[in-house]
Amino acid sequence: MKAVLCESYGPPKNLVVKEVESLIPGIGEVVIEVKASGLNFPDTLIIEGKYQFQPEMPFSPGGEVAGIVKTVGEGVSHLKVGDRVMAGTGWGGFAEEVIGKASNVFPLPDGISFEQAASTMMTFGTSYHALVNRAKLKAGETLLVLGAAGGVGTAAIQIGKALGAKVIAAASSDEKLNYCKSIGADMTINYSQEDLKTQAKALTNGNGVDVIYDPVGDRFTEPALRAIAWKGRYLVVGFAAGEIPKIPLNLPLLKGCSIVGVFWGGFFRNEPHVNAENFQTIVKWLVEGKVQAQIHKKYNLEQVAEAMTELTSKKVKGKIIFVT
Score class of each variant (00 low, 15 high):
residue 191 Y to M: 04
residue 296 H to G: 11
residue 32 I to K: 01
residue 77 S to K: 14
residue 143 L to C: 11
residue 260 V to E: 08
residue 316 V to Q: 01
residue 123 T to H: 11
residue 141 E to V: 08
residue 214 D to C: 00
residue 217 G to N: 00
residue 22 S to L: 11
residue 225 L to P: 04
residue 257 C to H: 00
residue 191 Y to Q: 02
residue 176 K to S: 04
residue 25 P to G: 07
residue 59 F to A: 02
residue 35 K to Q: 11
residue 3 A to D: 05
residue 133 N to K: 14
residue 289 G to F: 05
residue 57 M to C: 11
residue 306 E to T: 14
residue 185 A to F: 02
residue 267 F to S: 01
residue 65 V to T: 07
residue 257 C to S: 14
residue 190 N to V: 00
residue 201 K to M: 15
residue 200 A to N: 04
residue 285 W to R: 03
residue 33 E to Q: 13
residue 310 E to I: 07
residue 261 G to Q: 01
residue 267 F to K: 03
residue 75 G to A: 09
residue 324 T to S: 14
residue 124 F to E: 02
residue 289 G to H: 02
residue 281 T to D: 09
residue 199 Q to P: 00
residue 102 A to E: 03
residue 26 G to Q: 12
residue 268 F to M: 13
residue 59 F to E: 03
residue 78 H to L: 08
residue 149 A to M: 03
residue 89 T to Q: 05
residue 62 G to A: 08
residue 139 A to D: 10
residue 210 D to C: 01
residue 244 I to Y: 00
residue 277 E to G: 12
residue 7 E to G: 05
residue 191 Y to E: 01
residue 23 L to T: 12
residue 249 L to H: 10
residue 49 G to F: 08
residue 269 R to I: 06
residue 60 S to P: 09
residue 27 I to Q: 11
residue 58 P to L: 08
residue 22 S to D: 11
residue 300 N to T: 15
residue 162 A to P: 01
residue 205 N to W: 03
residue 274 V to N: 09
residue 67 G to C: 07
